[in-house]
Design a protein around this nucleic acid. Structure first.
Lengths: 196, 196
DNA sequence: TGGATTAGAAACTGATTGGTCTAAAATTAC
DNA sequence: GTAATTTTAGACCAATCAGTTTCTAATCCA
C-alpha cells in the first residue's frame, strides 16, 4: 500500500507538548515546532493538519497526562488526608521550579495569552481548569473542619493561588513567593478549619 | 524655530497604555498602537524611540498611576483597618471585572508573556510587584491577630492570589472564581488571625 | 519673508509568520 | 514490477512584523 510513517506520532506529540509548554501557543513558531518534533513542514501538516489542531491535541494530551494525574492524586485517599494531598500538590509545584522547571502550567499560559480568544482553545483550557477545581473540592471534602458549603469557595481560592504561582514560576521574578507558598496554603487550610 | 508637536505627549502615552493593557506587549502591533494613539509611524518613532522604549515608559506610568495608587490605599489608615483595606483592594478588582473590564493587570500580563525575557521589562515588572508586596505587608501590620513574622508569608500568598485572579479576569473563563474571591481572601485573613 | 525644524502620510526594508506545493526518493502490498 | 503512499527537502506564498526613509506641508523665530 504505502510507505509507513517514519516517526512515531505519539513521540512527536510528546515533543510538541514540550515546545508549546515552554513557549506558549503563539510564541511557538513553526520552525520551533519542526525542530523540536524532528520532522519537516510537509510531515507536520499531513499528520496534524495545522498548528491550531496540533495545539488542541496537545491540550488534550496535557489534560490526560497532567490534569487527570493531579486530580487522581487529589482524590487518592491512600496519599493521606485532604490537607496532605493539597499541600503535596503545591509542594510538587515548588519542587519542580526549584529543579529548574520554569514551564509553568500549559493551561494557564494558554489562558493568559491571546490564544484564549479562540473559542476551541478556551473551551479546552476551561475544561482542564474545571477538572482541577473539582479535584480540589474532592480533596477538601477530606480535610477536617471544612464545612461542606465552604468547599467550593476554598477550592476557588486554591485554584487562583495555583494559577498565580504557576505564572510566577514562568516569570522567574525573584519575589520569593514560591518558596513560602506551601506554608501559605497551609495557613489557608488550617485557618479555614479553625474558623469552625 | 520649528513646528510644534500637534499631539499631546501625555495623552498619547495614556492611550498607548490602554492598547498595551488590552493586548499585552507582543500582541500590541504597531498599527494597533498608531490607531489607538492617533498618530503616524514617523511621529511615534521620533517621540518615543521604539516600541520597547514606549512600553517601558508605559510600565513606569502604570506603576505611578495604579501600583502606587494601590499601595497608598493599602497604607491609608483612614480607609479602615488592614483587613478592610485588603478586602477593599480585592473587591475593587472584582468590581472592575463585573463592570466589563477584562484588561487584568498590565504588570502580570507582561510577566506572563515572553516580554518577561527582556531584562529591562522584567526589572520594571519586578519593581511594581515588589511594591505591591510591600504594600500588602504594611496593610497586614494593621490587621488584628497577625503576628509580625507571618506578615511577609501572608503578603506573598495574597500577591499570588492577586496575580491568579487578574489572570482569570483576562481569560474570561467562566469558572466562578472571581465572584467568591473576596470571601476567599477574608477566609485567609480571618483564618490566619484565628490561628493566634 | 526666509531658514530651520517639525509633523504627517506613505512608500519601503528585511525578517518572520503560518501555510502550500512540488519533486525526487523510499517503502509497502499486490 | 507496478501502483500507492509517505518520506525528505526545499521552494514558494501572501500577510504581517518592527523599523527606516523620503517627501511635502505646516509652523515657528528672527
Amino acid at each position: 500500500m504505502a510507505r509507513p510513517r517514519e516517526f512515531d506520532t505519539d513521540e512527536a506529540l510528546e515533543r510538541a507538548m514540550e515546545v508549546f509548554w515552554r513557549h506558549g501557543y503563539e510564541d511557538a513558531s513553526l520552525p520551533d515546532l519542526l525542530e523540536g518534533m524532528g520532522l519537516t513542514r510537509g510531515s507536520l501538516y499531513k499528520a496534524f493538519k495545522d498548528k491550531k489542531s496540533l495545539f488542541l491535541m496537545i491540550l488534550e494530551r496535557y489534560e490526560t497526562a497532567y490534569v487527570d494525574g493531579g486530580v487522581t492524586f487529589l482524590s487518592d485517599k491512600s496519599a493521606g488526608d485532604g490537607r496532605t494531598r493539597i499541600l503535596g500538590m503545591f509542594g510538587g509545584l515548588v519542587a519542580a521550579v526549584e529543579a529548574g522547571d520554569h514551564r509553568g502550567c500549559l493551561l494557564c499560559t494558554a489562558a493568559s495569552g491571546s490564544a484564549a480568544d479562540d473559542a476551541d482553545i478556551a473551551a479546552a483550557v476551561h475544561r482542564g481548569l474545571a477538572k482541577l477545581q473539582e479535584g480540589l473540592v474532592v480533596a477538601l471534602a477530606d480535610v477536617d473542619g471544612i464545612a461542606p458549603q465552604d468547599r467550593l469557595r476554598l477550592a476557588n481560592t486554591l485554584l487562583a493561588q495555583y494559577i498565580g504561582l504557576r505564572m510566577l514560576a514562568r516569570s522567574r521574578l525573584p519575589l520569593g513567593i514560591l518558596e513560602q507558598s506551601v506554608a501559605g496554603v497551609a495557613d489557608l487550610l488550617d485557618g479555614a478549619a479553625a474558623l469552625h
